[in-house]
Design a protein around this nucleic acid. Sequence first.
DNA 1: AGGGAAAGCGGACCGTGGTCCGATTACGTT
DNA 2: AACGTAATCGGACCACGGTCCGCTTTCCCT
Lengths: 220, 220
Amino acid sequence: MRMSGGIPPIGPTGDTLAGPVDLDVTAADAGRRPRADAVRNRAKLLDAAARLVADCGAANLTMDAVAAEAEVGKGTVFRRFGDRNGLLLALLDHEEQRIQEAFLSGPPPLGPGAPAIERLRAFGPAVMRHELDNMELYLAAEPPVERRCSVPARGLRRAHLMILLRQTEATTDVELAAETLLASIDTPLLHHLVEQRRFPLARLEAGWQDLVTRLATPLP
Amino acid sequence: MRMSGGIPPIGPTGDTLAGPVDLDVTAADAGRRPRADAVRNRAKLLDAAARLVADCGAANLTMDAVAAEAEVGKGTVFRRFGDRNGLLLALLDHEEQRIQEAFLSGPPPLGPGAPAIERLRAFGPAVMRHELDNMELYLAAEPPVERRCSVPARGLRRAHLMILLRQTEATTDVELAAETLLASIDTPLLHHLVEQRRFPLARLEAGWQDLVTRLATPLP
DNA sequence: AGGGAAAGCGGACCGTGGTCCGATTACGTT
DNA sequence: AACGTAATCGGACCACGGTCCGCTTTCCCT
C-alpha cells in the first residue's frame, strides 16, 4: 500500500545518481503519517479507477466517473492525485516499478552482472515489450508536453543508459546518445510503428541492437 | 491565400513519393469553388488567431476568444478548422511550408545539388533552428498522441530522410534510421534540452552530425 | 479522555473544447 | 430576375477537467 502525499512534486532529475533505489510518480515523503481516511480513500480510488479502465478503456476514464465509482467527492480525487495525469501515472506505477527493478537489479543480461554492452542491448527489447504490454495506459498517461521529458521515470532511464554507455568504449556525447536511444523507443512512436505501420517486433529489436552497436562503437 | 475544405483529412502518408510537391495540413481539394463568405471568414479567423497568439501566447489561445475576435460564431471556427489543433496547424502552415521548400528545393547543402550525406548533415540543424524559432506554436500545435506520427509533415520528413539515406552507403534498416533521426530532434525533446537543460545549440548540432555519420557508415 | 487545530472532504461552480440544429445566405439554373 | 437548394452560419448546449471553500474528521498533546 502506498502512502499519500498531496500533489506529486515534479522533482529535479538526479542525473548522476547511480544507486538502484528510486521511487517515482505520486511518491509520498516526509512529514507525518497520513490520515487513515486519506489512505482508505486513496485505495478506493485506485481500485475504482482500475475497474473503470478495465471496462471503459483508459482513454475514456473521466474523473467524475472515478469519484462516483469510489463513492467519494470529486475534490478528493484531485487532492489525492493532482490531476488526471497523476491518477493515470499512479495506476501505472506498479508496472513501472517492475520494469525499473528488472533493469536496476534483475537478472542479467538486463540487470547487473552482464557487460555494459549486453545490458544496453537487452534494455531496448525489454522496455519495448513492457510498453507494448501496457500500451493503453502509457498512451493515456502521457504527461503534458512541457513535463514530457522531465518525468522521473524518464530521468531514471536516462541515467541508467548514461552509466552503461560510459562503461563502453563509446566516444560520443553520452548524454545525447542516451536521449537518442530513449527517443527511438518512445511510446507513441512504438505504438505508431507496431499498430499502425505493422512493423514486426523483431525488426524493431534488430533496429535497437544496430543503434546500440553504432553508438557504442568508436568511429574509425 | 489558401482555400478551405472542411475538416482536414488525415491522409495516408505517401511513403515512397519523391517529388518536391506537398501540401499539408488543412489542405483543400476537389469539389466546387468554396463560398465567398467561407473564404472571408477563414481569413478573418486566421488573422484574429494570429493576433491573439501574438499577445496572449499560443498556449492560452481559446476557441471562444478567436470566434469573438473574428466577430464570427463559434461553430464557424470549428467547421473551418475541425478542432483547436487544426487551427494551430493552419497558423503554422506558412512556416512549415518554408522549411519544406528549403529542404525540398532550396539551395544546397540543404536542398538538391549537394551529395546526400551533406544534405543529411544539413537537415538536422536546419530543422532544429526552424523549430526553435517557432517553438511556441509547434508545442501548442502538437497533435493528440494517436495522430502524432501520422501527421503529413512528419511523413514528408521521413520520406525525405529515407531517400537521402538510401543514397548513402548505409547498410541499416533505412526506414527505422529515418525514424530515429526524426525522433532525435522531436520538438518537445529539443525544447527540453535547450530550454530546460540549457544544452547549447552547437552541442545538439554536433550530436546530429555524429548520429548521421554513425547511421550512414557501414559497420566494420 | 478531552480539546484544539490541521488535514481531509465534498460538491457547487467555472472555463474550455466540441456538437447540433434551426435560421440564413450564397450560388447555379431557368 | 427570381427561385430552389445546399452549404454556411451562429450561438445555445453538453461533457469534462480543474478550483474553491465551508463543514467534518482524524490525530496529537496534555
